[in-house]
């Protein structure tokens, strides 16, 4: 199987859509890469793939090589700067037009998930992150089955479960936690995304979708709570336009002083030069994810040693 040279597989799951699975996957990947690990992302959201857009590589196509498909590279490893390589595979790279609908029934989706797991030439990877669509259906069942059948012992580290704080979201995410229990997937922990928004004008933090719901849920299900991630429109701008994040003086995110790094001019949306991973370093969410990633890495190592 093409996953043979992958050290750890981490799934990113959520029962609810639009809570930020893909954005969390992206940031986990960037953060792991900044920690010097080689990372791959497999996007199995077949009808709504977001990973190509988030990395700004929508026009890339998958290339065929002897023995399988080559993933699309985001950046190469840079040992001098301590940055690991990053590459992605998504159905988005197989579409002719970006707006094309993929109208597929379950069996076709199952076949595609299987093919993604068996035919992609990842090469040596420290981490493979698997981004999933919302729900507990065909893609998830197939993924769980395939990994159970084909993954090496200790290879599948478990799942990072993403939620937003409102009860409407946690209600669905609780279903996903039960799915993990039933299918024997280890839950590494819960991330609460969109937890608060810091007004760029007055730095007042408002809990738009409430706050704390994810933490309470994690406690209820006795799983680890990995942290709260606030909404940062600068991150949205970074991935949407490639603009370097800018913060007004006095902005604090999760206790970190962001300081001023330039004139805050929201009118420009020019793409700044440089790699996404470099620009992400100055995003307010980078330290937040550094902390989350550390916990994920510790859990993954512990799991790998335990088996």
């Amino acid at each position: 199987m093409s996953l043979d040279k992958v050290k750890h597989i981490v799934l990113v799951l959520s029962g609810k859509g639009g809570v930020g699975k893909s954005s969390i996957t992206t940031q986990l990947a960037l953060s792991l890469s900044l920690a010097g690990h080689s990372v791959g992302i497999l996007d199995i959201d077949l009808t709504g793939p977001s990973i190509p857009r988030l990395f700004g590589i929508e026009s890339s196509k998958v290339t065929q090589a002897p023995g399988g498909w080559l993933p699309v590279p985001v950046h190469a490893a840079n040992p001098a700067a301590g940055i690991g390589s990053l590459s992605c595979m998504s159905l988005g790279f197989l579409l002719r037009e970006r707006g094309d609908a993929v109208v597929w029934r379950g069996p076709k989706k199952t076949a595609m998930v299987r093919q993604f797991l068996s035919d992609v030439l990842w090469g040596e990877l420290d981490y493979l992150l698997i981004d999933t669509p919302p729900g507990t259906s065909d893609e998830h069942i197939s993924l769980a089955e395939e990994l159970l059948k084909n993954a090496l012992p200790g290879q599948v580290a478990g799942a990072v479960v993403v939620t937003t704080p409102q009860a409407v979201a946690t209600a669905d995410v609780k279903k996903e936690l039960n799915f993990c229990t039933k299918t024997g997937i280890n839950v590494i922990g819960v991330v609460e995304n969109m937890s608060g928004f810091v007004c760029p004008n007055c730095s007042e933090c408002t809990n738009i979708f409430n706050s704390g719901g994810g933490e309470v849920m994690a406690e209820e299900f006795s799983v680890k709570f990995l942290g709260k991630v606030p909404i940062d429109p600068q991150f949205v701008m970074l991935v949407e336009t490639g603009r370097r994040p800018k913060y007004p003086p006095g902005t604090q995110v999760n206790g970190h002083e962001m300081g001023t790094n330039g004139n805050v001019d929201y009118s420009t949306d020019v793409k700044d030069p440089g790699l996404l991973v470099e620009k992400y370093k100055i995003c307010s969410l980078a330290p937040v994810f550094e902390a989350i990633t550390k916990q994920v890495m510790a859990a993954v190592e512990a799991k790998a040693q335990g088996t």
């Binding site: 007004c199 004008n201 007055c202 007042e204 408002t206 429109p233 949205v236």
Partner: peptide, 17 residues
């Protein structure tokens, strides 16, 4: 768009780029 309850500044949280 989101209107800050403290300073009534309107922010585009999910910006329409």
């Amino acid at each position: 768009g989101f209107v800050c309850p403290k300073c009534t500044h309107q922010s585009e949280i999910f910006q329409a780029t």
